[in-house]
Design a protein around this nucleic acid. Sequence first.
DNA 1: CTCACTGAGTGTATGATGTACACGAACAAG
DNA 2: CTTGTTCGTGTACATCATACACTCAGTGAG
Lengths: 238, 238
Amino acid sequence: MSAWTPPPPGRHVYEYPRPAVAVDCVVLGLDTDDLKVLLIRRGVDPWKGAWALPGGFVGEREGLEAAARRELAEETGIGEVFLEQLYTFGEPDRDPRHRVISVAYYALAKLSDFKLTAGTDAAGAGWHPLSKLPALAFDHAAIIDAAVARLRGKVRYAPIGFELLPPRFTLTQLQRLYEIILERELDKRNFRKKILSLDLVIETDEKQTGVRHRAARLYRFDRKKYDRLVKHGFEFAI
Amino acid sequence: MSAWTPPPPGRHVYEYPRPAVAVDCVVLGLDTDDLKVLLIRRGVDPWKGAWALPGGFVGEREGLEAAARRELAEETGIGEVFLEQLYTFGEPDRDPRHRVISVAYYALAKLSDFKLTAGTDAAGAGWHPLSKLPALAFDHAAIIDAAVARLRGKVRYAPIGFELLPPRFTLTQLQRLYEIILERELDKRNFRKKILSLDLVIETDEKQTGVRHRAARLYRFDRKKYDRLVKHGFEFAI
DNA sequence: CTCACTGAGTGTATGATGTACACGAACAAG
DNA sequence: CTTGTTCGTGTACATCATACACTCAGTGAG
């Protein structure tokens, strides 16, 4: 046994090998007629120049969700979104250079809130339709698949679809949302009957503006009522 | 800047701090009339002597699920079970001594398969009913809560309940399983109607033995048929 | 002002599914 | 043979899902 050696300056020494831990965020947004995902261009190797999910390493004393929100803010300017842990990807070879375990999160954003203008930190960020994604770094394509699958599964029994819409929305917008996510058409009258019978959207006295046809009534989601009902065992289902 | 210093022998040196990454397994088993979870007694500090989930650190070139299965086998003797990733727990202070991020898995085991006999590696392991858990190390109580919630949610739209039963089971056993997991009583005739209409359990020509009343017919789950149906868009639901 | 266009908003009939409910027969044990 | 226990079964009713088409409101063009 050799005598104890002081750690080299600026370095971190452990008795056993440790993987690096990162977070990656799949931010989904609803556009007119498809879902889009927010990607950034990688500025560093490996995969320099490729599109990738926003993300980065977790700070020494930082929670995982906190790290995800920080990276989102830094790399895309997005704050205050619905964000939920998705899955942890940790195959030994997912990063060619060293072992990286990535805790993936998915977020739902109102596209309109995030016009990604050049000149900000988010200059290299862009919304890409799920149907034609560019080549992606690492296993990020698989992470996106997992996020979309989760959304599809969850949207039917949790009111998370509202996270993708502006605070005031028309029932037709809401129907389009479900049609896009579930990838099937829904009957207008049955959809409205169902939604209104749940009694979780409140009719406002506002109407759509800027449309070149009869303006539809705007509704809002009653989150308080939903929370109250859930406490008493109610289960949302579309 | 000082010149490069060689790493001390037997140590691992990184430029940035890295958390340790562990896996923890919530193994659930179905007993006569409740769910039980498999716990081990910790032999080392911190929390030496406390009950904890089986788990441990992830090897340098080992996948996460592989690590979970390895730890399960080493600490409890359990192999070949249904195992699925649950959630990753990474609050900075969940371990008092250093940062540990734990990727939790949950497993469903047939209790009968795992009589935990003293004298094996699993000597310190034991099944504990969820309703009266001992004090647990770290945030393991929260991990168990998450696993049970996941099971409760998933059992209704995925045929994972069968993982908790022996390969041949009676419909009454299956009904008890759902009653225990969902924590509500089900109507016998309606339950049988529902299950049989799904056409996923196959009547065998065997009967229960060793019971002191009329023996019930045994059924088995038709996994192949289920897989085939799922491919064509079928959705299981109880 | 009129017309054309687009999407808003609305009800009913039918089939499918969920729910409530009770008793006779099988078998084992004594 | 009696007792105790669980098995296995059907029907009536309520609820929910589905299929389906037209009138009207409002805008914009001419």
